[in-house]
Design a protein around this nucleic acid. Structure first.
Lengths: 177, 177
DNA sequence: CGATAATACCCGTTCGAACGACTATTGTTA
DNA sequence: TAACAATAGTCGTTCGAACGGGTATTATCG
């Protein structure tokens, strides 16, 4: 069967309604394929990619903490269920939650020693995942991809948080002024 | 607050472990943002994006049918639960299932008149979604994005099905020879 | 100061994703 | 042809995503 089907250099516009739709479906497909790879890694340690990212963000603000909602706003993808995501991380002992002193509505979340340890354990695997996923692309191509993706989602980012999720750069103080 | 934070042209490598990881996270983030848009549309009609795609694929082979697994293989993203995905579509009357005559293990899935109707109803919305999602990018950029994405996932596609999911081009016969 | 609104989080619930065990049917082989 | 393997799909179950309503706390405004 492999030989009979003429490959046809994709006569474009036959399958997709529009170029926009094709790009979106390609994006979806590609994400799905790459996701499979790192989920396999995280699964071995009982966490999800989203949870891993939460830990990564908490490590970046260490030894400070983030409120539940501030953490949620920095996650890669939407998470309408921060409470239970944190429940699971807390059960595993990777984070600690405690009610804020100044504003008792707020819950401050901190990464624990054990959370840092699991990040360390995962570090090598994560690097290897990156290579498995996209290591075959030259740097120029990766940079081009990143640039286009930023363009693509720019209009869909809430301007107030546009740089938030990339913005877990060390803020040494983090006093909420 | 918008004025105080110096935008900083992204000093690279500060936040991400590697360029590969950055590209992947950008991909994830972008997918998540775009997905939000068309899910809002599909939700109004009680279906998911995955279900919509199944219907689209079934329309393409109409009036023929596909086996459950053949349909699953053509979907945009993995679906380890074809049975129940089809359960839901069947409940809504969008597809019909019937056991194949030649091979009684196989279930043939066909789109119904009602399934075609819902695709027609959605057509305008889907086009609008495409524009909302990526209409702000010039064609050249979209094409570049598509090309890079194909490159990106090429090593992760099962070669036997690499063109499958794009391959719902009319196969007039579809006799299983 | 008291009423009202806004904020931050929690939780009940429903649905889909994912995994794996299971059944029925067909193919293979001695 | 009988035993065994491979295939196609179903189903139980667990977990996460998503939505919406509920509660506690703080802010606002007369």
């Amino acid at each position: 069967m492999a030989a009979t089907t003429t490959v046809s250099p994709r006569s474009a516009s036959s399958v997709f309604d529009s170029l926009e739709q094709e790009a979106y479906l390609q994006l979806w497909r590609t994400y799905d394929r790459l996701r499979e790879i790192d989920e396999r890694l995280f699964q071995q340690y009982g966490i999800t990619a989203q949870q891993y990212n939460a830990l990564r963000i908490l490590r970046a603000v260490r030894p400070g903490s983030l409120s539940t909602s501030a953490l949620g706003a920095r996650l890669v993808s939407r998470a309408p269920d921060m409470t239970r995501l944190l429940d699971r991380l807390e059960e595993q002992g990777f984070v600690r939650r405690q009610r804020s002193a100044e504003n008792r509505r707020v819950i401050d979340v901190t990464i624990t020693r054990s959370g840092l340890a699991v990040l360390d354990t995962l570090a090598a695997g994560v690097r290897r995942c990156g290579r498995d996923q996209l290591g075959h692309l030259p740097r120029k191509t990766l940079q081009a991809l990143i640039a286009i993706l930023e363009q693509a989602r720019a209009p869909h980012e809430d301007q107030s948080t546009v740089d938030q999720w990339l913005g877990n750069r060390q803020r040494t103080g983090e006093g909420e002024a």
